[in-house]
Design a protein around this nucleic acid. Structure first.
Lengths: 184, 184, 184, 184
DNA sequence: AATGAATGAGTATTCATTCAT
DNA sequence: CATGAATGAATACTCATTCAT
């Protein structure tokens, strides 16, 4: 009668579960796309369905959480003294390649406030680093923060359409082309 | 027993149905993405489910048919005497904006021969127009056909992630950036 | 516009179509079972769906027609001077093996008068041959026509559950067992 | 939004659901044949579609589970001291009459390992009881286990083609005939 | 707070049957 | 009278979400 359930590890597991779910989401969405079954994420995380829903009430919440992790990382990097815009773009690209599935969140048919808020923060980080990069002669003076965001969007869109193994290489090729248009 | 079926318009409706299905697919996939319910396509086309499946045995067949229409258009344009690579890219962009949903086909987890064949043809058209464009000083000499295809991929990826109304504007902005990297 | 339809061969094709449909039905039902798509029968026969329905308004009509062919054959055989019950059973078995799919008609959830009528005729043929077979000492005196019909039903049921290649051999084994119970 | 769903009886319903599904399957397949809609089984069991699929991922799994119940019953019976082969055959016949729909599983176009495994066990049970039955003079010495299995197959095939009400009587008649061929 | 079974709405797909040509 | 496209009901199956334990 008592089927062999996973042991209920109690409240102390909460933080660990949250982390496991995020990691699992990155993997699963990366492999199967953003419309992968949520049950697959829970299973990969070794966590019950219910726990997934407790932590992340819907699919977008899960994606936003990953995004937020990424943005925090970016903000921390930007706060470091010598960080250039190029370094930030490299970091963004790494994140894209690692968590492509989430790019599709941006698409989410119903525009979602939470996503926009996070996107906003990315924009702010880039905008902050642009002037210095222009002064250093690394970016044309007429390039705007919007242009940089646009470029990222293009790389993201491309990367999400390419088989996992080709993503890094493809992103690099894309940036090579784009940077020629951004440099003075 | 005698449910109020749509009137059977007979075999003569076949050609019209096929056309209606393609048009409906462009609309529906454009609005809802490539994973929109096929039943929505059939309904939009004013055609029975069965007819959809007769004409296009699977989702990819439907997408490929739209793609093929586009490619033929492109090939015809390329065959015209004065057609430049820039004109071809403009045409491609128009097609992208009009039938974005189909971009996602390229992604189709299971690589599909039919899709690759069509993509191949697009590449060939562009490659054919590139040398002349370079001689005319419109494209850098070190630009390859692969670069052009890559650029299209980026625009496509971006456009597919943007709400319908913004697509044209977004595509234009993207090309502005990209062309700076392609021009001498 | 004028798609390459099969040429309309006109009324003269009627008889040929009927025959082709019967032959196709035997093949298709034999391979795929009695619930094979009727469209498969039409296609195998090289005949339009509509023609199939003109000749055989429903699935059972098709089966009954095959059965009837078989019964006629049986009746003709029985009418021959020296025909024994054993010979008739051999013939029935051959028919079973050749058109197993039709055995399932007997099952047809809704009992069907047409089927019963044909079954009746088979019973009559066997009943007619039984007395002589008993006088010849080939069948026990307490065997009834119903027993013989029952035996056929058993072989039929068995054969229909066995892969095509094994049918003949299986039928032979079944009869070996059954005949021991029927012989004096 | 809040549609009137069946009350969620929680995980504790699992065992009961499983049992209800098996019982419903026996009934529904018995009445409508092995190709009855699975939704009918779920409805009869008073269980959601999803639960059916959780317990039995496909049609064959459901059938095999019923078969297995039967085989276990048989094995237990065979393990009892005084059980004769005749008693086992009676038990098999009762099972056949009760769960005829499942006989058709054997037919499943795609040969299925799970089915074969269960069939194997039935054969083993019978083979085990045969020698003793022969020593007791109840079965001819030249009868093999394969013959017994064959006989069961014949009864099964026959019973599955007969309306529910006639099944018991028909099975009895069939065995009367067959046993004459099996007894010394 | 965690677990995982239960639920049923939503989709894909097939196929019997009709009917314009 | 033949043809084969059109139609949509029926069915299989998946998965987001809820909830008893």
């Amino acid at each position: 009668m008592t089927s062999p359930r996973r042991e209920n590890r109690g409240p102390s597991a909460a933080a660990g579960n949250r982390r496991a779910l995020l990691a699992a989401a990155v993997e699963v969405f990366g492999e199967q796309g953003f419309d992968a079954p949520l049950s697959a994420v829970a299973k990969r995380a070794g966590v019950g369905q219910g726990s997934l829903y407790r932590h992340f009430p819907d699919r977008v919440a899960l994606a936003v959480a990953v995004f937020e992790d990424n943005v925090v990382e970016l903000e921390e990097l930007a706060a470091l003294p010598g960080t250039t815009l190029d370094a930030l773009l490299d970091a963004v690209t790494d994140q894209l390649v690692a968590s492509v599935g989430f790019v599709d969140v941006v698409t989410a048919s119903v525009p979602d406030g939470r996503v926009e808020a996070v996107a906003e923060r990315v924009g702010a980080v880039l905008a902050g680093a642009l002037p210095q990069a222009q002064r250093a002669g690394r970016f044309r003076d007429d390039v705007t923060a919007a242009d940089v965001v646009l470029a990222i969007g293009m790389v993201a869109g491309l990367v999400s359409k390419v088989p996992i193994g080709d993503r890094l290489r493809t992103a690099a090729a894309a940036w090579a082309l784009l940077r020629r248009g951004l440099r003075p």
